[in-house]
């Protein structure tokens, strides 16, 4: 029984690892091009790796850097956001995103003022989804162990202490599971998007005949609420909502 588990764990770890020397070579090439300030060539290389279906925070971070150097602030923001989506505790990507956001025409909120909220956000960013999954499984096994102990060893003794610990652990487990689920949802959420065209006008309805609500510029990050025949209802971080054309932005998705 124990052997089977061991084998399973081992296979799980090894399955993620597959070395592709060819891709590594392309990556090195791209890094050299970047150092030689040939940013468009470097970008081409990095993009070719991305097209291989590689999802890596560092790769996205590098692509974002290339775009930034090529003065495409919108796309650089998109890729920094992608990097953060893969690994929310990618400090370099966070810093660069914050910096790139200062180049947009519209001011955007980067951090929240609220102490509790920012603490929560920080915790949420730092803990990666896999770490949360691991913590959850460890807590779960501890709970199960305690229950097993209570069944086998403590069946005719006072159970207050182990029961109490089990309850506490269960609360923690639930908390982590919720965090884990939220993180997972965020990871698979594709409703966030970045404006790539120089500017876009938000209308009060899905056509240009409606009233202008706002104008946003390249690099604006917003939420997509609804999509309808070439138009999307978006919501800005300051609460403004309006319809913009779908070909002006790209969703942050992996």
């Amino acid at each position: 029984m124990k052997n089977i588990i061991l084998i399973l764990i081992c296979s799980m770890i090894t399955s993620g690892i597959f070395a592709n020397t060819q891709i590594d070579d392309v990556f090195e090439d791209a890094v050299i091009s970047f150092e030689e300030k040939d940013y468009s060539k470097s970008l081409d290389r990095f993009k070719s790796i991305e097209n291989e279906g590689i999802i890596s925070a560092d790769l996205f971070y590098n692509i974002g850097n290339c775009y930034f150097r090529l003065n495409e602030v919108g796309r650089s923001i998109l890729y920094f956001k992608k990097a953060l989506k893969v690994r929310s505790n990618h400090e370099a990507a966070r810093r660069n995103l914050k910096y790139a956001l200062t180049f947009t025409k519209d001011k955007q909120e980067t951090g929240s003022e609220d102490v509790i909220k920012s603490f929560w956000e920080k915790a949420f960013e730092t803990l990666s989804i896999n770490l949360l999954a691991l913590i959850s499984i460890i807590l779960f096994s501890m709970i199960i162990l305690l229950i097993v102990l209570m069944i086998i060893r403590y069946h005719n003794r006072e159970k207050t202490v182990p029961a109490f610990i089990t309850v506490v652990l269960t609360v923690f487990l639930l908390l982590f599971l919720i965090l884990c689920f939220l993180k997972w949802k965020e990871y698979h959420n594709e409703d966030e998007a970045v404006l790539l065209s120089a500017s876009a006008i938000g209308f009060s309805g899905p056509s240009e005949d409606f009233t202008r609500v706002f104008t946003i510029h390249e690099g604006m990050i917003f939420h997509i609420e609804r999509e309808e025949s070439g138009w999307c209802l978006i919501k800005l971080s300051n609460g403004l909502g309006g319809w913009i054309e779908t070909d002006t932005f790209e969703r942050i998705k992996l």
Partner: peptide, 16 residues
Amino acid sequence: IGFIIKKTDLKNNLIF
């Protein structure tokens, strides 16, 4: 902006 990352493990992150 920060410099690019030169060395990285180009593997797809497995989501447990």
